[in-house]
Design a protein around this nucleic acid. Structure first.
Length: 498
RNA sequence: GACCCGUUAGUCAAGCGGUUUAAGACACUGCCCUUUCACGGCAGUAACAUGGGUUCGAAUCCCGUACGGGUCACCA
């Protein structure tokens, strides 16, 4: 690419774990940068010091790395445009200088209206049915009167915020990369907005503009919820005479349950990457799934590696309409990866889940590890995320509950007890207890009893595993072990003989 | 309430005025495979929100309506 340098950023605030929506924003910026051989930058927007949490930044970065992202500049790796935390930039006086400039040019001013007053205004406006907005507090005053009003406020001990003087009745428009032409009239954005808080911190709308400009950001991909911020930011670019970057506002991910944008309170969807990570989802699969939420490739394939995504990524294919988060599809994608992934990777993750749940000891011996390996291999075809192994294979670890529901119906007949009695008896006498012999045993029962097919296999499956579905039966029985298998069968026989 | 935006099957989506009797995937249903279930293979059900235009021709362009969403903080 020979055009201007492509530089994009992901700018999280360190207020908590990496959210799915933010992860998606990060991924699309990353993909855009890598596809175009540009730079991907991380900047920490920590100007709201009250909301910052201790490990927020670290958690964000860790989870991004887990997803397979890497960046060229950022708080942890440095770069030529640092510092990469807004609080540090503030300490360097970067914002103050610019704010002073705006004030000197009459494009910003000190505002002394208190938060209580503003709140009252808003309530009154809302009651009147108009959009809540700030009304210019010096309306109609001469320069001298303004000066006096400010002096009076200072005398009362009020601390000012700095507001940006919004131009009257002026249209601000841009060609959005995903939405097309979007336009706002300056009168509809809520009045002169604050660019510096009472405590001296710049506000988001001001700091982003300053930093994006200073960091030479060329494109901004962010969530749809930022559309309304864009005209404000455009005004600031204009006030400084800076060239704004290109904007792309991506549709939001919504909850299938509520239809609303994913919010932290919505418990129908796991919201944080961290949670998926803990459940043993594969990072490649998460990357794959998230990328397909609101973006689609040209062909008909759905499974792509990170490298392939980088190659085929095209920001013009970002969707305009919001996408609901579909858990089933997520699980399907994960299962695709589990099935085709490296055995050791899956094994490793699954082992950790087994240990976490206490199903195998903290430091398993070689024999247990080998046994677990067989177990994981057995369930690999049907697992989506690794934590499922604990439930899927629960029969291997604890005494199963009574057979019930469809499974009970399945074995409530005359032939089931015959099969089970025979199987228990013959298995007991087996010289070698392995899957080959178990298979032969089942066949021999068929031969002698003439019971076959589902009526033969299902009772055994249900009695031994208490599940109606699962991996290869002989192999499963071998792994469960002879004593346990026989015990389960006897318990089941007791239950159905009543 | 105001301002912005969106609307193809249950869900994700392709589609960019004629090649569309509208792809593909998830989910669902059925069949096949495996002397069982699952996995896998094959097949099937199912959609252009609505009313007007424009045009020889509209899912595709324009306008209205309905519905959905986003934003209106000294949060980002």
């Amino acid at each position: 690419m020979a055009k201007n340098k492509i530089r994009v950023r992901y700018a999280p605030s360190p207020t908590g774990h990496l959210h799915i929506g933010n992860a998606r924003t990060a991924i699309f910026n990353y993909l855009f940068a890598r596809h175009n051989h540009g730079k991907f930058i991380i900047r920490i927007e920590d100007t709201d010091t009250k909301r910052n949490v201790a490990d927020g930044e670290k958690s964000q970065l860790d989870n991004l790395k887990w997803l397979g992202l890497d960046w060229d500049e950022g708080p942890d790796v440095g770069g030529d445009f640092g510092p990469y935390r807004q609080t540090e930039r503030k300490d360097k006086g970067i914002y103050q200088k610019l704010i002073d400039q705006l004030m000197a040019e009459g494009k910003a001013y000190k505002s002394y209206r208190t938060e209580d007053e503003l709140k009252a205004d808003r309530e009154e406006q809302e009651a009147r049915g108009v959009m809540p907005h700030y009304e210019y507090e010096y309306e109609g005053m001469s320069d001298d009167e303004i000066k006096k009003s400010m002096a009076d406020a200072e005398a009362k001990g009020l601390k000012p915020v700095i507001r940006f003087r919004v131009p009257k009745n002026k249209d601000y428009a841009w060609d959005d990369i995903v939405k097309g032409r979007v336009s706002f009239n300056s009168d509809s954005i809520g009045g002169d907005f604050i660019i510096q808080k009472k405590n001296g911190m710049p506000t988001y709308n001001f700091a982003v503009v300053v930093d994006d400009h200073l960091m030479q950001i060329s494109h901004i991909f962010r969530g749809d919820d930022h559309v309304a911020n864009t005209p404000k930011q455009l005004m600031i670019y204009e006030a400084f005479g800076w060239q704004p970057p290109k904007f792309g506002h991506m549709s939001l991910i919504t909850s299938a349950a509520t239809g609303k944008k994913l919010s932290k309170r919505d418990e129908s969807v796991l919201q944080f990457i961290e949670q998926y990570r803990k459940l043993g989802y594969l990072p490649e699969a998460m990357f794959n799934f998230i990328t397909l939420l609101g973006w689609s490739p040209v062909g008909e394939d759905e499974i792509f590696s990170r490298k392939q995504f980088i190659k085929i990524y095209d920001e013009k294919r970002l969707s305009k309409s919001p996408a609901k988060f579909d858990n089933k599809k997520l699980e399907w994608v994960n299962n695709q990866y589990v099935k085709s992934s490296d055995e050791n990777e899956v094994m490793d993750l699954a082992l950790r889940q087994l240990i976490k749940k206490g199903n195998i000891p903290e430091n398993p011996d070689a024999k247990t590890v080998e046994w677990a390996r067989q177990l994981v291999k057995l369930y690999k075809q049907q697992m989506s995320y690794m934590a499922q192994i604990n439930k899927m294979a629960s029969v291997f670890f604890k005494e199963p509950e009574q057979v019930s529901g469809d499974a009970l119906k399945e074995i409530s007949n005359d032939t089931a007890p015959i099969v089970l009695n025979e199987f228990a008896k013959r298995v007991k006498d087996l010289k070698i207890f392995d899957q080959v012999e178990i298979f032969k045993t089942i066949k021999s029962i068929q031969k002698d009893t003439k019971i076959r097919g589902r009526k033969l296999w299902m009772p055994i499956r249900i009695a031994v595993t208490h599940e109606m579905q699962g991996p290869e039966l002989p192999e499963s029985i071998e792994l469960i072990g002879r004593d346990k298998a026989i015990h389960h069968i006897q318990e089941t026989l007791k239950q159905i003989s009543k």
